[in-house]
């Protein structure tokens, strides 16, 4: 029974279609992550400044993206952009926009956390040798913050990749959506094919995310050992 079901993967172009779907998924995630990280780093630095209004606005932005579930964010942008702003975007672009804004929000918090955890005397001794604020960030604070924030950033990336599984909800032809179509088309011929299709999708996600989270875990462990070794 089950061993015949596996053939659904090799029927016609099914296997390539699934991989192409994964590629679409991956592309959306990659573009959103790059844009989101850049915006997030800038916002994170801005959030360590003393301007109260700026900090308040950015905090609200973060909290909004933290509190509203990603599914809901996708629908908000999918329905509201075209109707209220008359901005017609295909699902893939809506998804990139939502993910980029979400990554930016989360990243701003990671960057801010890392920056404020650089000891105060580092900041002061930087100022004491006459560094400007830009130089202080460029040469002292940001380099120290990077090693602190790297594991959290990698973990954020794995979360984004997992969250791309929601793309099918706004009609993007991602790997899950294609999987569903294949299941429906082959249900008669391969009743247990569904097991193999979703099993493969499961595996594909795992293969992308596992190395990343392994890397993050290793970095984190190294940092802990260093902190303890002092």
């Amino acid at each position: 029974m089950a061993h015949s079901g596996i053939n659904v993967l090799f029927e016609g172009t099914n296997f390539t279609r699934l991989l192409l779907g994964m590629w679409t998924t991956f592309k959306i995630a990659a573009i959103a992550i790059v844009i989101g990280l850049i915006i997030g780093i800038i916002l994170g630095i801005l959030r360590t400044f003393h301007n109260k209004l700026l900090r308040f606005v950015l905090r609200i932005y973060l909290e909004f993206f933290r509190i509203v579930p990603t599914v809901v964010l996708l629908f908000l942008f999918y329905y509201i952009l075209p109707r209220q702003l008359n901005l017609h975007m295909p699902g893939t672009q809506v998804a990139m926009l939502v993910f980029a804004l979400w990554v930016a929000a989360e990243m701003s918090d990671i960057v801010r956390g890392a920056l404020i955890s650089v000891p105060i005397h580092q900041r002061e001794s930087g100022l004491a040798i006459g560094l400007t604020r830009y130089q202080l960030y460029r040469y002292v604070l940001v380099p120290q913050a990077v090693s602190l924030e790297l594991p959290a950033t990698i973990n954020l990336i794995t979360r984004v990749i997992k969250t791309t599984s929601l793309l099918m909800l706004i009609s993007v032809m991602d790997v899950v959506n294609i999987g569903q179509q294949i299941v429906e088309a082959n249900n008669q011929k391969y009743p247990t094919g569904v097991f193999w299709i979703y099993g493969l999708i499961f595996l594909l996600y795992f293969l992308i995310d596992y190395p990343l989270s392994w890397w993050a875990g290793r970095l984190e462990k190294k940092r802990l050992e260093q902190a303890n070794g002092e």
Binding site: A2, G5, T158, K162, T163, T164, S165, L166, V176, G179, V183, P191, T192, G193, V194, F195, I197, Y198, G199, I201, F202, Y205, F206, D209, Y210, S213
Partner: peptide
């Protein structure tokens, strides 16, 4: 832990809801 952490909930649910009945 590795499997749970590195796969999306949506795919886990699809597996439980659609693939398990086939088994």
């Amino acid at each position: 832990i590795e499997i749970s952490k590195n796969t999306p909930l949506l795919v886990q649910l699809f597996f439980l809801y659609y693939a398990f009945p086939a088994m």
